[in-house]
Each structure stands twice: as structure tokens, then as C-alpha cells.
């Protein structure tokens, strides 16, 4: 076998690299810094004015709808709490501002682009992918429609085109990955007139978020949502009241895939003995056939 020194080192390095990666991932929330260079967005609910121009921007950027901007000035939508749906990857909802009920806080919801996305690990065909730049993208050509991602996502983000009879897809915010690759900002960020959405490197955004908290202690609670939640997310939030009072779920700092994976692995563990048996049988049959073939060869 022609395995020279160089190839040997390649294998060893790759192996140790993957081991290292595995190690970082394994530490609950540890290695959060690994995502510092990922792209992210800081959503400042104390600056957001609920103008819904981000919804417009998203629909334009993703060719979801072509409504006039002024239609988004309709405030009646805030009467109900909305969720992202197949033709709306992001929605703005309200939550109460103590002392000033006439001017509530607003909160934009979309995919959080988790550092350790549960949707990705739940997807058995690899239709969802965590890109190295941060976005979690979706490939409809790989998707088989099992909707495991919808169950796995702790933020209940992926939506499914139930109304589409022939080729239903899972739909969710893809962080405008194509625009990002071109050095542009996501559609919603570009559309936000108040710059309540700040696009940048996750590490810089965290610094910005903590500075805002220190600088305006009367304006913010000391919590950057998404810094640790579910092992950290690319999209993060600031708010003037405890996040328990918003629609964002209370989530520990444990990466969700570790939970789901351990369940999945548990299931697969149960499959190991029968699989091993089948494997052995297959090996036995294979060797048997080879021997037979050799015999045949000799005959010729």
C-alpha cells in the first residue's frame, strides 16, 4: 500500500482536527468564542419602533411578496401574536412596556441561526446546513419533507407549506446567505430605518450589546438574549424588560443538538446489535461469494 509520510500526516492532522472540533462542540456553550467571527444581527427592541419595514425588506429580498411599503404601516396586525409563516420569514410582534402601554415594545422574530442548530442535526438528509459564516440554510432539493426540523427547533421557526399540494417546502429565514456572500447586508437590516438591527460579526455585536447595557442601565436589562441561549445564536436581542416577559422562550445554555442527538443516538444504539448481526452476515456472504468466484476463476 502506497501510504507515504505525507499522507500519513494528513490523516493524523485531519483526525486530530475533527477530534478538536468535537471537543469544542461537546462543551456546553463552551467555545462560544468560536463563533465570534460568524455574521450575526443584534436586534435592539428598545430602538425598534414597530414600523415593520423589516418585513417588507425580507419579502423583497426573498421575492415572497411585492406589496407597497405603506401597507406595512397597518398596526392592526399587532392585535395577534404572529409567527413566521411560509411567505413571511420574519414578523414583528409587540410586548408590553410597563408605564407606557400606549407605546409598547416591538420584537422582530426570525430564525436565530443557532451556533449549534437543532434543526440541522435533526435533518437526516442534510437539507439544512450551518454555513461557516453563520447562516443556517435550507436546500429544498435535499429535503424529503419529514419536518423533523420543525419539531427540533427550540424557537419554532421553520414553517411548512401545507397548502402546497405538489412540492411543499420547509420555509424559514436563510439570513439572506446569497447577499451576505456578496458582501451585502440582509434585506431586513437594510430596510430598517431606525437601525434597530445591527449587522456585524457576532463578537463585535456582543461587545456592542454589553456596551449599550452599561451605558444605559435604565434602558436595558442586563441580559443579551442569544449570547448563551441554546449554546448561543447568531441573532441576538436586547430588551428593556426581562426576556421572560417577551415571547422568546426561556432556554438554557445547553446546545439543543446535544439533547436531541443523545435521544437519536439512544435510538440508534438499540439498532446496533441487529445491525451488527446483519453486518456479520453480509461479511460472511461476501467472503463466501469471493471464494466461490476464485474457484470459478480456477476452472477457466
Amino acid at each position: 500500500m502506497g501510504l507515504d509520510r505525507r499522507d500519513f500526516f494528513k490523516i493524523v492532522t485531519a483526525g486530530s482536527a475533527s477530534m478538536l472540533a468535537g471537543e469544542v462542540k461537546a462543551g456546553a456553550n463552551g467555545g462560544n468564542h468560536r463563533f465570534s467571527d460568524n455574521f450575526g444581527v443584534l436586534v435592539d427592541t428598545a430602538i425598534c419602533i414597530g414600523c415593520r419595514k423589516c418585513e417588507w425588506g425580507c419579502e423583497q429580498a426573498n421575492s415572497l411578496a411585492f406589496r407597497d411599503k405603506s401597507e406595512y404601516e397597518d398596526k392592526s396586525v399587532f392585535e395577534n401574536q404572529r409567527r413566521p409563516v411560509p411567505d413571511k420569514y420574519t414578523v414583528v410582534n409587540t410586548f408590553e412596556k410597563p408605564l407606557d402601554p400606549a407605546n409598547p415594545y416591538y420584537l422582530k422574530v426570525q430564525c436565530m441561526h443557532c451556533n449549534h442548530p437543532a434543526c440541522v442535526s435533526a435533518c437526516i438528509v442534510g437539507a439544512l446546513e450551518k454555513k461557516t459564516e453563520g447562516p443556517v440554510t435550507y436546500d429544498p432539493w435535499k429535503c424529503m419533507g419529514c419536518r423533523y426540523c420543525m419539531v427540533a427547533c427550540p424557537f419554532q421557526v421553520p414553517a411548512y407549506e401545507y397548502a402546497e399540494p405538489l412540492t411543499p417546502q420547509v420555509r424559514k429565514c436563510g439570513f439572506c446567505y446569497d447577499k451576505l456572500k456578496d458582501g451585502k447586508k440582509p434585506g431586513c437590516v437594510e430596510a430598517c430605518p431606525n437601525e434597530a438591527l445591527t449587522f456585524g460579526k457576532r463578537g463585535d455585536l456582543l461587545e456592542l450589546a454589553h456596551n449599550r447595557i452599561i451605558q444605559n442601565p435604565e434602558k436595558y436589562v442586563s441580559h443579551v438574549y442569544g449570547e448563551y441561549e441554546a449554546g448561543g445564536t447568531s441573532w441576538m436581542y436586547l430588551a428593556g424588560v426581562e426576556f421572560e416577559k417577551t415571547e422568546l422562550p426561556v432556554i438554557g445554555s445547553e446546545p439543543i443538538p446535544e439533547i436531541t442527538e443523545s435521544i437519536q443516538h439512544g435510538i440508534f444504539k438499540a439498532f446496533v446489535p441487529p445491525l451488527a448481526l446483519y453486518g456479520l452476515l453480509a461479511l460472511a456472504m461476501h467472503t463466501f461469494r469471493e471464494k466461490q468466484a476464485e474457484k470459478g476463476d480456477n476452472h477457466e
Binding site: 419602533i49 414597530g50 405603506s70 404601516e73 407606557d100 400606549a102
Partner: peptide, 9 residues
């Protein structure tokens, strides 16, 4: 927006 309760452009 605090007094007009509107964000119309």
C-alpha cells in the same frame, strides 16, 4: 411616535 403613536413615513 411617542405622542403621535404613528410611524407613517
Amino acid at each position: 411616535r411617542e405622542w403621535s403613536h404613528s410611524t407613517a413615513c
